[in-house]
Amino acid sequence: MKKRYLILALVIFSIASVFIGVSNISPLDLFSLTEEELQVLFVSRVPRLVSIVIAGMSMSIIGLIMQQLTRNKFVSPTTAGTMDSARFGILIALMVFSNATPIQKMLVAFIFALLGTFIFMKILDRIKFKDVIFIPLVGLMFGNIVSSITTFFAYKNDMIQNMASWLHGDFSLIIKGQYEMIYISIPLLIIAYLFANKFTLAGMGEEFAINLGLNYKRVVNIGLVIVAMVSSVVILTVGTIPFLGLIIPNIVTIYHGDNLKKNLPHTALLGAVFVLACDIFGRVIIYPYEISIGLTVGVIGSAIFIYLLLRGKAHGL
């Protein structure tokens, strides 16, 4: 898959995404838009497109970073407790500040996501048995535990339903004025690109990295901060998109090898194209209603994940 095909696909899907929806806007009307149509376009359609593209790109890239840092193809924000910790953070924010502003929520979610990912890395450090499959298993367990703690507080405060909305990725509620936070991801992704090679080195292990004169702790910490920040931003604007950070980098690796710096643009593009395609699919299939992105990616993603696992097993991992 060449980069230009991905870019082409991205452009086509983006155009399609803008013009699909209940209130009919045809591309032909573009130069004679009514007030109302302009409204729809700029309040709902364009924000939706922007958030899809950014969420797709950033979730895929932080997945890739985590895989490099842990040297494990099956680690991602969903399989390392990051998402669950961020959700726990949102709950705490809602409990502590009764009318939490988005920024407050984001900061608390960020702190928790960072802490959760950090604990996961600490656990990894202490596990003697480093099986490729065992590590994501520990991460998923850890995530389950964190969400059971979330449930404990949510149940006590009657917020179960409230929390359920963070559980499920959904683009249909995105409108102008409520999604702009997702732009925070962009500078973070640029930093990630600049640090790409260092993440690869850090993934080789602490001793290896120090031997090559790398400030290991700092590089890992920068990686974790990016991962936690992006996760909290995405979960607050869109919700959870399961397995995205896991399948996209793996698909790219399959046809493109293991060089992080080269893979980053591909991963970002494919992530955006994949989420766009899933979103369009979800909007078209039961038109005029729509299936949320959480479900479409959840279903397609779990199928692809199982396929990758089986494939990896056939290749001796």
Partner: peptide, 24 residues
């Protein structure tokens, strides 16, 4: 057995996606 468990968990996520969609 780890593999079995991981596939089980993923199926679990799949079931969960389905039910949370219906719950909405």
């Amino acid at each position: 057995v780890y593999f079995l468990l991981l596939v089980g968990i993923i199926c679990g996520t799949f079931f969960q996606s389905m039910s949370s969609f219906m719950e909405v």
